[in-house]
Amino acid sequence: MSISHAEQVGELHKSSTLKVVEVAKAYLTLTKPRIAILLLFTAFAAMIVAAQGIPTLRQMVLGLVGLGLSAGGAAAINMWYDRDIDAVMTRTAKRPLPSGVVSPGQALTFGLLLGVASVVLLATTVNWLAAILSGAGYVYYAVIYTMLLKRRTPQNIVIGGGAGAFPPLVGWAVVTGHLSLMAVLMFVVIFLWTPSHFWGLALYKNEDYTRAGVPMMPVAKGSRSTKRQMVAYAVLLLAASLALTPVMRAEILYTVLAGIFGLGFLLVNIRLLSEPDDEHRWSKRTFFASLLYLPAMFTVMAICALA
Rank of each mutant, 00 (worst) to 15 (best):
H5R: 15
K14A: 15
L18D: 15
A24E: 09
K25M: 02
L30T: 06
K32D: 08
P33M: 03
A36N: 03
I37K: 08
I37P: 01
I37D: 07
A50W: 01
G53I: 08
T56N: 08
Q59N: 15
Q59K: 06
V61T: 10
G68R: 03
A74G: 01
A74Y: 00
M79V: 05
D84I: 11
A87M: 05
R91I: 08
A93M: 14
S99G: 13
S103C: 09
S103I: 04
G105D: 10
L108R: 11
G111R: 11
L112P: 08
V116S: 00
A117W: 02
W128Y: 12
L129Y: 03
A142K: 05
A142S: 14
T146K: 06
I159Y: 15
G162H: 11
F166N: 03
P167D: 09
V174G: 06
V174T: 08
V174S: 04
G177V: 10
H178G: 14
M182H: 14
M182Y: 13
V184D: 05
I190H: 05
I190T: 09
F191Y: 15
W193E: 12
S196D: 13
H197S: 11
F198L: 10
N206L: 13
D208Q: 08
T210S: 13
G213C: 12
P215R: 10
M216G: 10
R224D: 14
A232M: 05
Y233Q: 02
L238V: 02
A243Y: 04
V247L: 01
R249Q: 14
L253Y: 07
Y254R: 08
F261D: 03
F265P: 05
L267F: 15
I270T: 06
R271E: 04
L272H: 01
E275I: 10
D277R: 03
D278Q: 10
S283M: 02
T286G: 15
T286H: 06
F287D: 05
F288L: 15
A302S: 09
I303Y: 13
C304N: 00
